Simulated scan of single mutants.
Amino acid sequence: MLYRTIPKTGDKLSILGYGCMRLPEVDGKIDEERATRQLRYAIDHGMNYVDTAWSYHMGESEPFVGRALGDGYREKVRLATKLPSWLVRTRGDMDRFLDAQLTNLQTDHIDYYLIHVLNTTERLAQLEACGLRAFLDEAKKAGKIVNAGFSFHGPADDFAPIVDAYPWEFCQIQYNILDEENQAGTKGLEYAAGKGLGVIIMEPLRGGNLTDPVPPEVGDIWDRAPVERTPAEWGLRWVWNHPEVTVVLSGMNREEDIEENIRTAGEAYPGSLSETELSLIAKATDTYRELMKVGCTGCQYCMPCPAGVDIPLCFELYNNKYMFKNPDAEMFYVVRLSGVLTSGPEQYASQCVQCMECLDKCPQHLDIPALLETIVEEMEGEGFDEKKQMAREMFAE
């Protein structure tokens, strides 16, 4: 495992961090035994940064992490979680959430505490009016948090002012081969690092959309590479190639992915990719941009939908239609969203009632209602009712 240093603190963090937003599940709940085994395996192999949040897994991620870091594992890692900024109305809310998180995580301090989804200067001003600065200063003085930071999914112009607004030790941004000029982007990465902040990277593989399965057009590009690597390794190495990056978070939930990422994190030095390799990655990036219809990462921030639409799954199935040119894509859409596989309710795009709640929640700033309308037109056209009936008959008990 390679390590990089937080400039302001001297902390040496593993370049691979464990993201706890996409833990393995069984029947819609965290598979605690398997997830604990996976997390501890990663720690045993040198990973020392664990990231969770109040909202992950519908509030169950923090309590899980608290239990999983028992038996001495808490002392082996730097633990990060996040204040749910969208739920804060008063200074008392901030203290209440932090104290609850300490209880959830079974610890007396958070090593890296982030203001979650601090996306705009307007939102920063609202939090400052509630006493954000005093909250952070006092929590640090009391030893409840060690380092203060923020996560960002907002417009590029708001990033630098937020960096400059408080003596943060670190920040967390989305960065991958498709997001060089999106959100904070490369300019934001370099700006934050230039100010001495550690930079934690989220969504390095766009929620797994850059890995499995790979569109044939992109697979052909990777097959022409002078060295054999998986798509995940190409994507992670590209992010780690930037010396400004401190830690890359991976939402690992398969044993083979954990092993591969740990191996790669022992080799991925900054500046280690050749010009030939960088050119190959650029070609793959251009091809992805040509194929993808919706830039959704599957982060689930838009969920739950009040009307019952599974928004990320709608986007995933719609993207797959174009990336993989599957003639059965519309039938897959019908089956996956019908509820027959989960004994649950239907979750189709056509259930959208245009309430607009999802618009403010989307870190990618997608026009979700308009995109769902397009999906209805393309995926729920002629014969839709017949396909729904077929799905029910195919999977009837």
Rank of each mutant, 00 (worst) to 15 (best):
F97R: 05
T90D: 12
P167I: 07
L87T: 12
W54K: 06
A148P: 04
T81M: 07
R67A: 13
T121N: 10
L102G: 05
L102K: 09
T120W: 03
G131L: 08
F152E: 11
E128R: 15
C130D: 10
Y166V: 09
P84Q: 09
A156K: 15
A160R: 15
M58K: 15
T120E: 08
K144E: 06
L136E: 01
Q106F: 00
D164Y: 06
I110F: 04
E60G: 00
L98Y: 02
I162M: 07
K141V: 06
K144D: 00
A129F: 06
E62S: 03
E75R: 11
V65Q: 02
A68E: 02
F135S: 01
P84H: 05
F170V: 11
V65I: 14
P167F: 04
A165I: 08
Q106T: 07
R89G: 14
G70R: 12
G143F: 08
F150D: 05
L132K: 12
Y56R: 07
E122Q: 14
H116M: 04
I145L: 11
C130I: 03
Q172E: 12
S55A: 15
T121L: 04
I110D: 00
P63E: 05
L102H: 06
G72C: 04
F152G: 02
D93Y: 02
E169M: 01
Q106D: 12
R91P: 00
D95Q: 12
R74K: 10
D95G: 09
G59F: 07
Q126I: 11
A53T: 08
R96L: 14
P155K: 14
G92W: 07
T107V: 08
S61E: 01
Y166C: 01
Q174I: 07
R67I: 01
Y73N: 08
D71K: 11
S151A: 13
Q101E: 14
G72S: 05
Y112S: 11
N119F: 04
N147C: 15
D71I: 10
K141Y: 09
D158R: 02
F152A: 10
K141I: 05
I162E: 08
D71P: 10
F159G: 06
R133S: 13
R67K: 15
V117L: 13
A80C: 13
A100R: 15
K76G: 03
D108A: 11
L102W: 09
D111K: 12
R91E: 15
D137Q: 13
L79C: 04
R74W: 07
M94F: 04
R78Q: 14
L132V: 03
D95K: 12
Y56E: 03
G66W: 09
L98W: 01
R89I: 00
T52F: 00
R74F: 07
E75P: 09
L105Y: 01
